[in-house]
Structure formats: C-alpha cells, structure tokens
Amino acid sequence: MKREIPILLTILCGLAITWSFFSPQPVSQAVNDELLAWGTVFFSVAFLLGIGNLVRISLKQISARHPDWPYKALLLVVLFGYMIIGVAEIHGWFGIPDGQNLRRDWIYERVFQPLQATMFSLLAFYIASAAFRAFRARSLEATLLLTAGALVMIGQVPIPPFFPFAEAIGDYSVRLQGFLMAYVNAAGQKAIIMGAALGTLATGLRIVLGIERSYLSE
C-alpha cells in the first residue's frame, strides 16, 4: 500500500490536471485551481523544512568548529536577524511603524541586490574564458563553431568608420549574422525543442500512468 496509494494519487492528480488543460469547463478549471492551491500550501510548509535543514547543518558545523564555522554563524545571524526585523515591521514592534518595510527594504536593496548583481556580472568573465576554450580550432566542428561565432560577433558590433569598406562590411556582416541566427541557429534550436517536448510528453505519461516509479520509495 505504501507504493500503491502514491501511484493512485499521482494518476488521479495527473489525469485531473490533463483534463483541465483540454477542457474549458468550469468544473475542470475548479479542480485544477484547487489542486494548485494545495500545491501552494505544501510548498509553503516545505519552506520550513528547508530552513530546518540549513539551521541543523550550520549548528553542527559551528559546534564541531568546522573550518567554515564563522561563515555558518554569520549565516544564522543574518537569517534570523532579517526574519526578526521583518516580523517586527509587520507587527509594529520596537517603534517600527506598521506596514512600513523601511529596514527590510533597505537591507534587501542595499545589500542583497548588489550581491546578486555581483554574482551575475561574473558571467561576463566566464563567457570570455569558456568562449576562449570552445573556439580553439582543434577539429572541424570547433573550427565551424569558431567561424560561426566570429561572424555573429562581427554582425553584432559596429565597424569603425576608418576601416576600409566599413559600410559594406557592416551591411553584409549584419545580413550574414541575421541569416545564421534566423535559419541555422533557429533550426537547431527548434530541433532540440521538439525532441525535448516529446521527451517531456514521454516522461509525463510514464509518471502519470505509473510506468516510471523510481521516484517512489520501495
């Protein structure tokens, strides 16, 4: 029964959601909305499990004086500090006006967002290093990649006016870049999308029909 009940629930929920995709009837949409609402509740409760995991592992490392323990301590201070400030602002504790998320927003906008932007900006350097390795012409495929990459890159940047035939080169490179992106690149991408869509369909059917059961415990 430990396996049969989850499989039955999966089949019923899967069929209900599939039915709601095909049927515009209010009853099917209501079932869909209800299941999604249940999902939202589960997700919210599971968030506590994540925090529990984070706190448990951090406390273990702090108590064991793991080499990273100061970072773990800082993590817990920030986690609970931000939580306390947020709750205090909601309830108007400590003289913090009700409904004004000034401190919470300040921390988020002045600390967290710049840190996120810093991580994101690393991509510029990583793209350069990955492209440098990928574009080494060691084989026919790599040479084709290099050539296509170079053509698309030239088509994306303005040709300086002091270059001979700058206008003609600029015009042709833009058209060539457009051709590569609209036909060669798009065709490849659509082939991958089609394969992935069929793979998604196959996996969905396997799960909904109970053929694929490896996500369940024995």
Binding site: M194, G195, A196, T200, A202
Partner: peptide, 29 residues
C-alpha cells in the same frame, strides 16, 4: 542534450516499459 536527458532512466535500466516510451517518442518525431 535535450531529449537525451529524458532517456536516462531507460538507458540505464533498459526496462521494457521505459524503452517503449523512447520508441514512441521517436515514431512521433
């Protein structure tokens, strides 16, 4: 890449039920 990703369990286990979905995906393609 792409569809290969969804073939992993069939590839690793070679279970008939899972292989059937791979063939069905190919025929649909």
């Amino acid at each position: 890449i792409g569809e290969e990703y969804f073939a992993v369990t069939a590839y690793l286990t070679r279970e008939p039920g899972l292989l059937g979905t791979i063939r069905a995906a190919d025929l649909t393609k």
